[in-house]
Structures are given as structure tokens and as C-alpha cells.
Design a binder for these strands. Structure first.
Length: 491
RNA sequence: GGUCACGUGGCCGAGUGGUUAGGCUCUGGUCUGCAAAACCAGCUACAGCGGUUCGAAUCCGCUCGUGACCUCCA
């Protein structure tokens, strides 16, 4: 176990703080999940992996964690002021499907693709559409407390009134008068007292299919409400950690704070965490910019920006090689560097099973372990943690080569360190992925490459080279191993 | 325009006052029939200018550049 305490950067305090749960050993963790109106892309993976590592590490530290990650399947208005058209509904009209069918399809897609990254499923994965009643109750409470007003069947949050007692903008650092002068004028905003007021409940027009009855008339909940409602329901009025992407900091998280505080009278979140963005050519990868790469494209390599296919573990490792609060720039070069780096670590790990044991160790394993955990404790500094594992890999290789030595207890300790850090906490998988999901192709490759081995054994190098050259020409990469072969498909 | 970040060697990316980050590439070597792979070794950077300091990539100021948010977004 580690000697130092876990320190996390708290966005609302703008500094690192020692993590102390409200009710140890229990920890409540809420993370904003996806809006299910499109196939998951590379950007979705960053928070999934970031908070997966946090979830895993907290559990490793023997906390009992309830991890809630929502599925937004209703209510995200395209614009605050449009005619009640939301993203899921819009997609439904385009595709001529029932809105819930669309939401279900992309929910399944998200869960399936994310699971490939060895991301642990959250404890609870609530859907906004399943919590309409709770959302209405929260609106009722906010109205009762005087921080919302009803207008034409819609309910809006009264930011100005709220700001008299509380502080709207405490997370994002925005000032209410700055917002006033900087908010763009949108059509139909005359319903609201102020442009920065936001919808809690939105009246549904006749043509709007996604609708629920309420005491204010048929409508649907506003876009920030579900997180306040569901975090309160499953984690309580005050809970430990709220995570999400930096792009959600304003207005989404600011509004969440306002809603929860307005309803319950107290600050709901102790630690706010925000992961940074994946960039591509220096720009944020996102749906709206249209520069995203779908996960299935990453896995297949079928995208104009991709030189080859990348496995989920390569991508996971790539993300762990940057700190979660830094932007991470996508490039083929960087991905391929991660691919090789991961392989180096896995090779070293495999060597641990048959390493010559000596009386003494020529390396201080305990210090290595402490440094690696110190890195994790320092706001989940996974890149530094990994750099220590690379040091260990170099040492393992040297023991193998006979230039360094290790004793049996250190060897056991080193195995444990790799298991804990790389697999248990880092969430990587120890097995190298099979080169192809097509097992028939695998069988054929086995036949060909075994023929080649036989030819080599007979010193028939002409045949051996012919097999290799022709396979390479057909787009395969062939690697000879001490006791066999390895191959992969070049994209 | 407002608010806030960031600028590190060929690429990615840690580090925030004095110590080799690390990975990949590249170069050289070892090994193997050859090649690839693997392994070993080498390659010492911090946007610019000024300031603080015994000492700054690290603190302060200015300049330049990039990005995020301000509208849905992970």
C-alpha cells in the first residue's frame, strides 16, 4: 500500500487537494456520460478512461465506490430558444425512427465500443428518460424556493435571483454582468428574464414527439437538469467527486451547481474534476467540428487520417501516456509510438516468468514502487507512473541479459507492481491481442508460417524468403520469434 | 470582444527554482541464415525579450503564437 495520500486537482478551487471522502470508506463518483445521438468517437474515450483509472485506483485503495455515469437520451436542446427540437429528436426525424429507438441504438453502440477499452462498467448507468418524475420534483423544489419562474409552459432558472444569495459562476469564474454583455442575442429569448437564464422544463410543441406530461403542461426537461437530479438521487445531496470533460465546465456544470444549490440549499460536490480534450491537428476533436474519428474507424483503420488500425489497448495506453488535464494531440506517429511502447512493457512483463534469480538484487524495487505510486497519488499522473515501469522494463531486460540481478522476493514484488499498476489500475490487458479477429485467416497464416519454419529448419531459405516476401507484398508484417512467429495485418 | 489555459529536443509528452523524465524516431552496436522484431548504447530541449535570484525551462512583466469556453459537445 502507499504511504502518501491521493491528491486531486479540484477545478472549483483551482488547486490540488488531498482527497478525503465525506463518509469513508464510501466514495460517490458522478461523471457526465454521452449524449446518445451518434456513434462514439475518440473524444468519448478520454473521460471514460480517465475516470475508469480513478474508479480502479479508488477501489485499489480500498474505498467502496459508487460510480454513476449517466446516459443522456433526452433533453439536450440544440439551441436554448428553438422550438423544442432536441438532438435526439432531430436525428429521429432524419432517420424516420422512434426517438427512443435512436437513443437505444447509440446507447448500445457506446457501451459496446467503450467496453473494448477494458473500461469497467459504472455501478449505475442511469438514463435521463427514466428520471422525468425526479426531474419534475426538482423543478418543483427550485420553483418553491423562488429560483425559477414559469413562462408559457416552460420553466426557467432565475440566475439573477440565485446570484443574490449564492454565487453563479463560482466554478467557471464567470461574472453575471460579463455574461450579460457577451451572450449572443438569440431568437425567442423574450420568454426569459435574462439571456443567461436556462430552461429547467421546456414546453413541447405539437409536433414534438418526445414529451412528458407535467403540471406545467406537456414538455421535456432542460439540458442541465438530469445530472443534478440523478447525482442527488443516487449519491445524495452532497457527494465526493464530479467528473466530466472541460468543455462541460460552462455552462453545464455551472448550471448543475446552481440547480442543486437552489433545490437543496447546499453545495453538492466536494471535488470537481475535468479531463482535457483530444485534439487533432491542434483543434479539439468534436462532433460539431466534424473532425472526429469514430471508434470503429480507429479499430479498422478505415479513415483518411489513419495510416493503420489501432487496437483499443494501444489507444488506452496512448491516453495514459498523457496527463488527463493536458490536451492530447492525435497523430499516427504518436499512436504508433504508444503501440510500440506498450509492447515493450508487455514483453518485459512476460519475461518476469522465467528470469534467473540471484541472491541479491542490483536494483531498488521498493523505491521504484514508491515513486510509481507517488506519481499516481499526484493527481493521477499516469505518464510518470508509466515512465517508472519503463525503467523497470529496462532493468528486467538487463537481468535477462545477465548484466543485472534480482532476488526472488524482488521478483515477486516486481510482478505485483506490474499487475497492480499496469493491469489492475491502468486497466490494460496483459495478453497481446490476436492479430486478426478472423480465425480462418489465422488458421491459414499458421499453415503458411509453419511451412516457412519447416523450410528454415531445412536451410531452404529460398522457400522461406519466398513465403515471407509474398506475404509482405500482400500486406502482412511477419516477425520471427525465438520459438515461432508473429504476424499482423498492415492496413 | 470577454474569460481561462498553453507554447519543452525530429514527433508525442512529464516536470514548476539547482538533479538523466519517459516513450517513439534517428544513429551505432548485439543477436538471428538474411530482413524485420527484440535487446544495448548514443542524441541534453524548454517561443522571444527583459526582470527577480548565488542559480530559472520552472517565479514576475511584456511581446509573439496556439487552443478552449462564452451555443450542443467528452
Amino acid at each position: 500500500m502507499t504511504k502518501n495520500k491521493l491528491v486531486l486537482y479540484n477545478s472549483i478551487k483551482k488547486k490540488k487537494e488531498v482527497f478525503e471522502p465525506l463518509n469513508p470508506p464510501f466514495v460517490g463518483l458522478y461523471v457526465c456520460g454521452p449524449t446518445v445521438y451518434g456513434d462514439p468517437h475518440l473524444g468519448h474515450v478520454r473521460p471514460a478512461i480517465t475516470y475508469d483509472v480513478l474508479f480502479r485506483y479508488l477501489k485499489y485503495l480500498n474505498y467502496r465506490v459508487r460510480y454513476v455515469r449517466n446516459i443522456t437520451d433526452v433533453g439536450h436542446l440544440e439551441r436554448d430558444s428553438d422550438d423544442g427540437e432536441d438532438k435526439i429528436l432531430k436525428k429521429a426525424i432524419i432517420e424516420q425512427l422512434e426517438p427512443m429507438e435512436v437513443a437505444q441504438y447509440y446507447t448500445n453502440s457506446y457501451k459496446y465500443q467503450i467496453s473494448k477499452f477494458n473500461v469497467l462498467p459504472p455501478s449505475i448507468e442511469p438514463q435521463a428518460s427514466g428520471h422525468i418524475i425526479e426531474q419534475q420534483q426538482m423543478i418543483g423544489q427550485i420553483l418553491k424556493n423562488g429560483y425559477a419562474y414559469l413562462k408559457n409552459g416552460s420553466v426557467y432558472f432565475d440566475v439573477e435571483e440565485y446570484n443574490k444569495k449564492y454565487n453563479y459562476g463560482k466554478l467557471s469564474g464567470r461574472k453575471i454582468d460579463e455574461l450579460l454583455s457577451n451572450t449572443r442575442e438569440l431568437e425567442g429569448q423574450d420568454e426569459k428574464k435574462n439571456s443567461f437564464d436556462f430552461a429547467l422544463w421546456k414546453r413541447a410543441e405539437d409536433k414534438h414527439i418526445m414529451r412528458w406530461p407535467s403540471e406545467w403542461g406537456d414538455g421535456f426537461p432542460g439540458w442541465h437538469l438530469e445530472c443534478s437530479t440523478m447525482s442527488t438521487k443516487y449519491l445524495g445531496e452532497v457527494f465526493d467527486i464530479h467528473g466530466g470533460g472541460m468543455d462541460l465546465l460552462f455552462p453545464h456544470h455551472e448550471c448543475e451547481i446552481a440547480q442543486s444549490t437552489a433545490a437543496n440549499g447546499k453545495e453538492s460536490v466536494k471535488y470537481w474534476m475535468h479531463n482535457n480534450m483530444i485534439t487533432i491537428e491542434g483543434q479539439k476533436m468534436g462532433k460539431s467540428l466534424g473532425n472526429f474519428i469514430l471508434l470503429e474507424e480507429m479499430f479498422s483503420g478505415k479513415h483518411e487520417k489513419l495510416e493503420k488500425a489501432y487496437s483499443p489497448m494501444t489507444i488506452r495506453f496512448f491516453m495514459l501516456q498523457a496527463h488527463y488535464r493536458s490536451t492530447l494531440d492525435f497523430s499516427n506517429e504518436a499512436l504508433q509510438a504508444s503501440e510500440k511502447g506498450l509492447e515493450r512493457l508487455l514483453n518485459a512483463f512476460q519475461l518476469l516468468d522465467n528470469l534467473p534469480v540471484s541472491e541479491k538484487s542490483s536494483y531498488d524495487i521498493e523505491t521504484l514502487k514508491q515513486r510509481a505510486f507517488n506519481a499516481l497519488n499526484d493527481d493521477l499522473n499516469t505518464p510518470v507512473m508509466l515512465s517508472h515501469l519503463f525503467d523497470a522494463a529496462k532493468y528486467i531486460n538487463s537481468v535477462k541479459a545477465g548484466t543485472e540481478s534480482i532476488n526472488s522476493s524482488d521478483l515477486a514484488s516486481l510482478k505485483e507492481i506490474f499487475n497492480d499498476l499496469l493491469f489492475d489500475i491502468g486497466g490494460l490487458l496483459p495478453d497481446k491481442e490476436s492479430s486478426s479477429t478472423d480465425s480462418k485467416l489465422g488458421e491459414v497464416m499458421d499453415i503458411l508460417l509453419n511451412l516457412r519454419i519447416a523450410a528454415k529448419a531445412n536451410k531452404d531459405f529460398a522457400t522461406a524468403d519466398k513465403i515471407r516476401d509474398q506475404l509482405q507484398a500482400a500486406g502482412f508484417i511477419i516477425k520471427d520469434k525465438k520459438d515461432g512467429f508473429e504476424w499482423e495485418l498492415k492496413n
